[in-house]
Design a protein around this nucleic acid. Structure first.
Length: 908
RNA sequence: GGGCUUGUAGAUCAGUGGUAGAUCGCCGCCUUCGCAAGGCGGAGGCCACGGGUUCGAAUCCCGUCAAGUCCA
């Protein structure tokens, strides 16, 4: 915990604030109002701003955002453009959840300077944690803009710290017309993501308008400061991290019953009209229902409160029946949620998320399906894309129409896919429900979970379908929690120990040299050699390590692997013997290097071509190179067609033929981002202040790999195949340079081998193969028919030769080299003539069949077969009337038939 | 990144180691002035692919390819 000193700011003293302890929750807060006894945070204080706005004038989202940003701009902050809602620069989160997330981890850790300092930004954020509360609580949103000003201080240079931060906040609020007595600054130590610090929550009228965090601690085992069970130490860099809720500011300025009516009143009205719901907030009685709902929902933790309890409480407090309340409020809750969710989708898809069954794409699909479900419940029949369009045109996308073409296609496709899933699901549910209805039981919970988990059928829809055929279901309120319980935690990879020292990387400046002189700095316990400088490329960025040799006085050591660890490069050798201080001459295997470089540069070209052919939504989702092929994973929302693939291949080869130079340059990170945007980070985010920018034709990426110096050196690019590695991610495999030529040659070999077998020229292969296949099918049928005929032909002679024993007609015969099909056919025909029959073939196959008299006497075909097959060293079985078997010792067939005959007698 | 599920006739699906099935659709015939319905008959299957276990695999095991779905 932090002491009072951490919060006793000059500002509070100058302005006559008092520090008080909340008489309800016991937390400390600062206020100008001597009368105040509570901290201002629900549930200690209720909402008072509904119907009585905090600010003097109503603002729209755009007005409020502009007011905020220009306020801070006028006070020495640089205005920064917002980052995407999909956090491509992070590998630990998918979505941008706070403005500070833009600057993690490299800026906050001090490794990389901020784009400006101090700065102000309004960052759209998406949080899906409280999805269930959206629409219901009156205040929850999936998407919100976090307005912020950030300061990155170091012990060497401090811009400003707590005092000015709170002062600016107070000025902003008072400037908007807030009563200075209304605000409380509530002390609330903050911790998260390995950092911590004191913080204040800014409460007005029961609404938390902002949080001001003073991040100056980092988690260190055994550190001197204890917060929430973790120990921390002071950091060298300390950061002002503020978060002002844009939507809440707008809500506070209107005092409307819900946040949704404040931030997009026109869209709420429009969707209400479409759904045929009357939404008249000018009716005081009607408005009061929503206001009271929001007030009470604001007081409780919705996770701990069941919906029906909350409804009862609200109904009681405004004096109507819970049924009437539900009838009034439920359709609007869905409308609010639809308007919110579609805004979330506009951002997600606008920023390039492709719906998928994994990663960020799954989150998009989750929201899409949830929205479709709500729309169905409301009876909205218009396409989802039309609702998303209403949002996207008012967001900050300059070329939204162009973008929307793809987005519409994606949404329409998702809508169709979901309809299909539900259609399939309903059939499955009916089958399952039928089963349990016959048993006179409700469909058990385990079955409902399986339907959802495995087949994606929401329990509400499953219940509906089950009830249609009169089956009950077991469906508890906390269904989704039960599903969530099945979660498994993935272990995080442990950080590798970083070795001290630094190896100079020569391969960037001298990509075409293959010999270098170096000194051995150290040899690790594992025998890996650290050099002061190297031309050998260590594995990274999907490019494998170089191979080569290190020579000392004529003695050669083979380099079999090269890895980077921190700033040093480790050379793994096939032979041991090098020691610290040795001078060595290094040589690079240039054939391997060149093959990698060709594939690496080709990867950039294929990626760029895919973007041209498929659209701008294409992002690299992974890549791997080797000597003889490379693969590139890209985000795309449907399968790549053959025609598209050919177009990509041709386009990529055109770039090769243009013999365009490959430019590389090191740029300061923030400058590179400013110049080229986040599209730089196709292959993940490199660390460090300087990043290497590689330009191949029109393709510009941050990339650390080795490249050829112009595209002509690639020679040729041949695409080999595509694979769908996930929903929404396509993998393209291709070969470049010599490997491309070899790949084509291998395909030629396949063709000539195939045409050799069929004895036709390659261009007639498809026709010939088809003919052969068709003929083969026809002949299979003909053989079936002939076997049938043959069986009938043999029937008479065999039945005529039947012996009689124990009152049964018995047929025991050898059938030459007949196969099991023939034996089966003949045997069952004979059995129809009321015989007991055992047939055997030279190949060691046996079939027995029993007619109706035999069956009546209890003769079983299975027992006959088992006895006979035993003699052949095998086994067999089947039904009483027909059985088959066999064994490897086919030459003992005569013995087997005798044994079978014995078994017939014994059975009868 | 992890979990679960599925590939059988044109479609929807049965088939838990022993001769591949049902329903709808398709074709033909009967009936009808014609159509629909009805009756009778028929065609249509490398049971996704490759391997393994077994006397025997749609069925069990392994791999590949394709698809669905839930979660982090």
């Amino acid at each position: 915990m932090f002491s009072e000193d951490e919060y006793r700011l000059d500002f509070f003293v100058d302005e006559g604030f008092q520090r008080k302890k909340c008489e309800k929750c016991g937390k400390f807060f600062w206020t100008r109002n001597v009368e105040r006894k509570t901290c201002g945070d629900p549930p200690c204080d209720p909402y008072t701003f509904i119907g009585s706005p905090i600010f003097k004038r109503m603002h729209t989202l755009d007005e409020m955002r502009e007011h905020y940003l220009s306020f801070f701009q006028a006070r020495g902050h640089a205005r920064i453009k917002r980052y995407p809602v999909v956090a491509r620069w992070r590998d630990d989160i998918y979505l941008t959840i706070a403005s500070i997330a833009d600057f993690q981890p490299f800026v906050t850790s001090g490794q990389v300077p901020p784009p400006a300092n101090p700065l102000t930004i309004s960052q759209p954020c998406i949080r899906l944690d409280d999805l269930d509360s959206v629409g219901r609580s009156g205040r929850h949103l999936t998407t919100f803009e976090m307005m912020a000003h950030h300061v990155f201080n170091t012990r060497e240079k401090e811009f400003y710290w707590k005092d000015r931060t709170v002062r600016l906040c107070d000025d902003l609020l008072v400037g908007l017309g807030m009563d200075p007595l209304a605000v409380t600054y509530k002390e609330n130590p903050w911790a998260g993501g390995g950092n911590a610090g004191p913080s204040v929550e800014v409460m007005v009228g029961g609404l938390e308008l902002a949080t001001l965090v003073f991040m100056d601690l980092k988690a260190v085992p055994g550190g001197s400061v204890q917060i929430k069970g973790e120990s921390y130490e002071k950091m060298n860099n300390y950061i002002v991290d503020t978060g002002y809720g844009l939507e809440r500011f707008v809500w506070a300025s209107t005092g409307s019953p819900t946040i949704y009516d404040a931030i997009f009143p026109d869209l709420v009205r429009k969707v209400a009209d479409l759904a045929g719901v009357e939404h008249n907030l000018h009716d005081p009685e009607y408005a009061e229902i929503f206001a009271q709902n929001a007030r009470l929902a604001g007081m409780v933790d919705l996770d701990e409160y069941s919906m029906s309890d909350l409804r009862k409480k609200i109904a009681g407090s405004i004096g109507i029946s819970p049924e009437k309340l539900e009838k009034t409020i439920e359709p609007m809750e869905r409308i609010y949620a639809v308007v919110d969710h579609t805004r979330c989708l506009a951002y997600m898809l606008g920023d390039g998320i492709i719906p998928s069954n994994v990663k960020a794409g799954y989150l998009a699909r989750l929201v899409i399906r949830r929205t479709l479900r709500l729309m169905k419940e409301l009876g909205l029949t218009l396409p989802l894309a039309e609702l998303v369009e209403m949002h996207i045109q008012r967001l900050d996308y300059p070329n939204w129409q162009e973008r929307f073409v793809t987005i519409k296609e994606i949404l329409d496709q998702e809508e169709g896919k979901y309809a299909e899933t539900l259609e399939k699901g309903k059939r499955l549910v009916k089958k399952t429900a039928e089963h349990f209805r016959k048993l006179g039981q409700p469909v058990p919970l385990a079955e409902m979970i399986s339907l959802y988990d495995t087949h994606g059928i929401p329990p509400e829809i499953a219940r509906e379908s089950a009830e249609e055929i009169g089956a009950a279901v077991e469906l508890p309120d906390n269904f989704y929690n039960l599903v969530a319980k099945k979660r498994i935690k993935a272990d995080r990879e442990e950080a590798k120990a970083v070795l001290p020292g630094k190896t100079q990387l020569l391969f960037y400046e001298h990509p075409n040299e293959c010999v270098f002189e170096a000194v051995v700095l150290d040899v690790t316990e594992g025998g890996e050699v650290i050099l002061d400088r190297t031309l050998l490329y260590p594995e990274g960025g999907g490019q494998p390590a170089d191979h080569g040799t290190l020579e000392r006085a004529g003695q050669a050591f083979t380099v079999v692997d090269v890895q980077k660890s921190g700033e040093v490069v480790l050379h793994k050798l096939a032979e041991s013997g090098l020691a610290r201080g040795d001078r060595v001459t290094g040589k690079v295997d240039m054939r391997r290097r060149l093959a990698h470089a060709r594939h690496h540069t080709a990867t950039h070209l294929v990626h760029d071509s895919a973007k041209r052919v498929l659209g701008k939504h294409v992002w690299q989702a992974g890549a791997q190179k080797s000597e003889d092929r490379a693969r590139l994973d890209i985000s795309h929302y449907k399968r790549i067609t053959d025609a598209e693939l050919k177009a990509i291949e041709l386009e990529a080869n055109r770039r090769v033929m243009e013999v365009a130079p490959v430019d590389t340059q090191f740029l300061p990170r923030t400058e590179a981002e400013k110049l080229f945007g986040f599209e730089l980070y196709q292959g993940g985010v490199p660390p460090g202040t300087q990043i290497r920018v590689v330009r191949v034709g029109t393709d510009i990426e941050a990339c650390a790999g080795t490249h050829v110096t112009n595209t002509g050196m690639i020679g040729a690019i041949k695409i080999l195949r595509t694979e769908r590695i996930q929903d929404g991610v396509e993998r393209i495999e291709f070969a470049a340079g010599e490997a491309a030529v070899r790949a084509v040659q291998e395909k030629d070999d396949l063709l000539s081998e195939a045409s050799g077998v069929l004895r036709v020229p390659a261009d007639q292969l498809p026709k010939t193969a088809e003919r052969f296949f068709e003929e083969w099918k026809g002949q299979q049928k003909e053989i079936e028919r002939l076997k049938d005929d043959l069986a009938r032909a043999r029937l008479k002679t065999l039945v005529a030769e039947a012996e009689t024993a124990e009152g049964l007609k018995i047929v025991v015969q050898k059938m030459g080299s007949a196969d099991i099909d023939e034996l089966l056919k003949v045997a069952s025909l004979i059995a129809e003539q009321d015989c007991v029959v055992l047939l055997g073939s030279e190949t060691g196959k046996l079939v027995a069949a029993v007619g109706k008299s035999g069956l009546a006497k209890g003769v079983k075909a299975g027992s006959i077969i088992r006895a006979a097959a035993k003699a052949l060293g095998g086994g067999g079985g089947g039904k009483p009337e027909l059985a088959q078997g066999g064994g490897p010792n086919a030459q003992k067939l005569d013995l087997a038939l005798v044994a079978g005959k014995e078994a017939m007698r014994a059975g009868a």
